[in-house]
């Protein structure tokens, strides 16, 4: 038996979310007295990186095929069989979420996405997952012998090991895909929102897209991703991919700074799992202050320049 971790490769590199998945997999393997195997499909990566975060073995399938959930799930299932994996860990990213249901189906496994905890194996195999778009958590017992778990980025600490692990090449081939990818547009130099540790977010209080340079400047200095409220993306001040909340993206950064956002229940749903929340609003009665750790009552246009200056030092 083993624990298999699906290691995502993006632009020839592993992401932090993948290292978290590997460290998580290692801890699960240690709990169950078994080993963790990472599966990397792609080219040009340094698999020793996975060893550092806990992978005892890495299986590498060299391939230049782009990610498609149907083809990759077939390969991951074949490898899971080969290494006798009863548990597979993926990251709860777009990639991880698109492969995990197909893989679970092929394996006949129970699947839990949005997972934020290690399994509790004292009574069954219970994991904690986010539900109601951030408004609550549920504990679910995964009943099948095999399980696939998608863990939420930034919910599990990295562990480092003094090892590179061993890497073996595999000749398992990808399944065929019914999909043809015709174009890929990656936003370069920006941190994906779901994986960011710090997020600076603006609402309608920012008055218009021409003022976003201040949000972006602060975000740049802090190494943060930018986000916005729903009306801001509805009015096309910002791309929809930045819209957080119950009908947007749910995020879980270490720090969320909300500027000129009222704090409606649907907005809070998507951000309230953030470790530390800062609200900046000129209205002392804004609901966001009830959900925040730190607050500044004042005009964003006075406060942002002060924050930018202080952050530069």
């Amino acid at each position: 038996m083993s624990v298999l971790v699906f290691a995502e490769i993006s632009d020839g590199k592993f992401k932090k979310a993948t290292f978290e998945a590997v460290s998580y997999g290692r801890q699960v393997a240690d709990m169950l007295g078994t080993e963790v195997v990472a599966l990397a499909i792609g080219n040009g990566v340094n698999t020793a990186d996975l060893g550092q975060y806990g992978a005892q073995t890495t299986i590498h399938i060299a391939s230049s095929e782009s990610f498609t959930p149907d083809a990759y799930a077939v390969a991951a299932n074949a490898v899971a069989n080969e290494v006798n994996a009863s548990i597979v860990i993926v990251s709860n990213t777009y990639t991880g979420k698109s492969i995990s249901p197909r893989l679970a189906q092929l394996m006949g496994a129970s699947l839990a996405t949005n997972v934020v905890s290690l399994p509790n194996t004292t009574q069954g195999f219970v994991v904690k997952r986010g539900v109601f778009s951030g408004k609550a958590f549920s504990f679910v017992d995964l009943q099948r012998d095999k399980k696939v778990i998608a863990i939420t980025p930034n919910s599990f600490e990295l562990a480092t090991f003094d090892s590179t692990g061993t890497t073996t090449s595999s000749s398992v081939s990808l399944g065929s895909s019914g999909l043809s990818i015709t174009a890929v547009n990656k936003v370069t130099g920006k941190i994906p929102l779901t994986e960011a540790e710090v997020v600076v977010s603006g609402g309608r209080g920012m008055k218009g897209p021409e003022n976003w340079h201040m949000i972006e400047e602060l975000a740049n200095i802090l190494g943060a991703a930018t986000a916005c409220s729903k009306p801001v993306s509805d009015m096309e001040w910002r791309p929809h991919s930045e819209h957080v909340g119950q009908t947007g993206i749910t995020i879980k950064p270490n720090l969320y700074i909300a500027i000129g956002i009222s704090g409606a229940i649907q907005h809070l749903a998507g951000v309230s799992s953030s470790k530390v929340i800062v609200a900046i609003n000129k209205d002392p009665e804004a609901p966001f202050f009830k959900a925040a750790d730190y607050g500044i009552v004042g005009d964003a246009f006075d406060i942002l320049p002060q924050l930018i200056t202080a952050a530069k030092n």
Binding site: A112, V126, F139, A291, A292, Y294, G295, G298, A310
Partner: peptide, 28 residues
């Protein structure tokens, strides 16, 4: 496949600490 055993609400914030707008830089 799975069974929900219980639910939990997120821990409520213990109260906001306000920083004076005149000294906003202190936040950093």
């Amino acid at each position: 496949f799975s069974k929900c055993t219980s639910y939990e609400l997120p821990v409520a914030k213990s109260g906001v600490k306000l920083i004076d707008a005149q000294e906003a830089g202190k936040l950093i």
